[in-house]
Simulated scan of single mutants.
Amino acid sequence: MEKNGKIVGLCGSFRKNSYNAMLLKVAGSLLPDGINFEIVSYDDIPIYNADYDIPEVSDRPESVKKFRDTLATADAFIIASPEYNYSIPGGLKNVIDWASRGKDSPLMHKPVALIGATQGMWGTVRMQTAFLPVFTFLNMNPVLQPEVLIAQAQNKFDENGNLTDDKTLSIIKIKLENLISACRV
């Protein structure tokens, strides 16, 4: 990725003290100078409805148009998400559905790094596995290694949202280096 490249972050949780929101901010802070990072909110996006997404009509809601336009500025993505019911949280899957449609999909062919934190013992492994078919359909370039599966997150973040586990920090740095390298291919 060239200097002034851009990575867009998406968080799969809207919780006030979300470990994944904290994780996404940590990841953004670890990016090298010259890489722009923007976390995109999507709490105003309606439930996906294909009736508003027909190419001939192009009647997507304004919030969806704005969201897609922001995603289109990205060279790559970082998604930090919890695991809900062994899978992708519904809100996150919903915006991926909105962004995935059409030949102008802002997700197509772009690198993506998936990371996750949970208070449980499995560290979002099932959510990350559930994303693989989505990435395949979109011809995205998922950065699979190293896996960032943070279990027992309540023991790895301080009260200010700082990640305090050095081993996890080093793994995230490697993941980000691999994401940036994927942009050069």
Score class of each variant (00 low, 15 high):
3 K>P: 14
4 N>W: 10
7 I>V: 15
12 G>T: 04
15 R>P: 08
16 K>W: 06
17 N>W: 07
20 N>P: 00
22 M>V: 02
23 L>A: 03
26 V>L: 03
29 S>W: 03
29 S>I: 04
30 L>A: 02
30 L>E: 07
30 L>R: 00
31 L>Q: 04
34 G>E: 03
35 I>Q: 07
35 I>K: 02
35 I>S: 04
36 N>C: 06
37 F>N: 04
39 I>A: 09
39 I>K: 11
40 V>R: 05
41 S>T: 08
44 D>P: 08
44 D>I: 05
49 N>S: 10
49 N>D: 15
50 A>S: 14
54 I>E: 12
58 S>E: 14
59 D>S: 15
60 R>S: 15
60 R>H: 14
63 S>W: 05
65 K>Y: 14
65 K>A: 14
67 F>Y: 15
67 F>Q: 13
68 R>V: 15
68 R>T: 15
69 D>E: 15
70 T>H: 13
71 L>P: 13
73 T>Q: 15
73 T>Y: 11
74 A>F: 05
75 D>K: 12
75 D>R: 07
76 A>P: 05
77 F>P: 03
77 F>W: 04
77 F>A: 00
78 I>R: 01
79 I>M: 07
80 A>K: 05
80 A>Y: 06
82 P>D: 07
83 E>W: 09
87 S>G: 14
87 S>D: 08
88 I>D: 00
89 P>S: 09
89 P>H: 08
90 G>K: 05
91 G>L: 01
91 G>R: 00
92 L>T: 10
94 N>V: 12
97 D>N: 13
98 W>P: 13
99 A>F: 05
99 A>W: 01
102 G>N: 01
102 G>W: 00
103 K>T: 14
103 K>G: 15
104 D>E: 15
104 D>V: 13
105 S>R: 08
107 L>D: 03
108 M>V: 12
112 V>S: 09
113 A>C: 08
119 Q>A: 11
120 G>A: 12
121 M>L: 14
122 W>D: 09
123 G>E: 05
123 G>V: 04
124 T>L: 08
126 R>A: 11
126 R>E: 09
126 R>P: 01
127 M>Y: 04
128 Q>A: 03
129 T>G: 08
130 A>P: 09
130 A>L: 02
131 F>V: 03
132 L>P: 00
132 L>N: 07
133 P>I: 11
134 V>W: 10
135 F>R: 09
138 L>K: 08
140 M>V: 11
140 M>Y: 05
142 P>I: 04
143 V>G: 00
143 V>L: 01
144 L>V: 12
146 P>A: 01
147 E>K: 12
149 L>Y: 11
150 I>W: 01
151 A>W: 05
151 A>G: 07
151 A>N: 11
153 A>H: 02
156 K>W: 02
157 F>M: 06
158 D>E: 04
158 D>P: 05
159 E>W: 02
160 N>H: 10
160 N>C: 06
161 G>K: 07
162 N>A: 05
164 T>K: 10
166 D>A: 13
169 L>K: 09
169 L>V: 10
170 S>A: 12
172 I>D: 01
176 L>H: 02
179 L>W: 02
179 L>P: 02
181 S>A: 13
182 A>W: 08
182 A>C: 04
183 C>Q: 09
184 R>E: 14
184 R>N: 13
185 V>M: 11
185 V>F: 09
